[in-house]
């Protein structure tokens, strides 16, 4: 028996999946935001090796 496209399991777990999806999206946004803030902060310095490797 082939799996139906919209199985009952999908409906039953839709709220749970949506919640996990939102948490993951928020996690990505937080890591991105933190990275931007840290990179733009006064104390941020690239390591010398990383700078020369790019040239």
């Amino acid at each position: 028996m082939s799996l139906r496209r919209e199985h009952e399991l999908h409906t039953r777990r839709s709220g749970r999946n949506l919640g996990v999806g939102l948490v993951l999206a928020a996690f990505i946004a937080i890591i991105f935001g933190l990275t931007v803030v840290k990179v733009n902060s006064d104390g941020f310095q690239m390591q010398s090796g990383q700078v020369t490797n790019g040239n």
Binding site: E8, R12, R13, G15, R16, L18, G19, V20
Partner: peptide, 16 residues
């Protein structure tokens, strides 16, 4: 099986 599982199955709010 499904109706019993549905009643007991955790939703996102239960984990929260």
């Amino acid at each position: 099986f499904d109706s019993k599982a549905y009643e007991a199955e955790a939703q996102f709010g239960d984990y929260f």
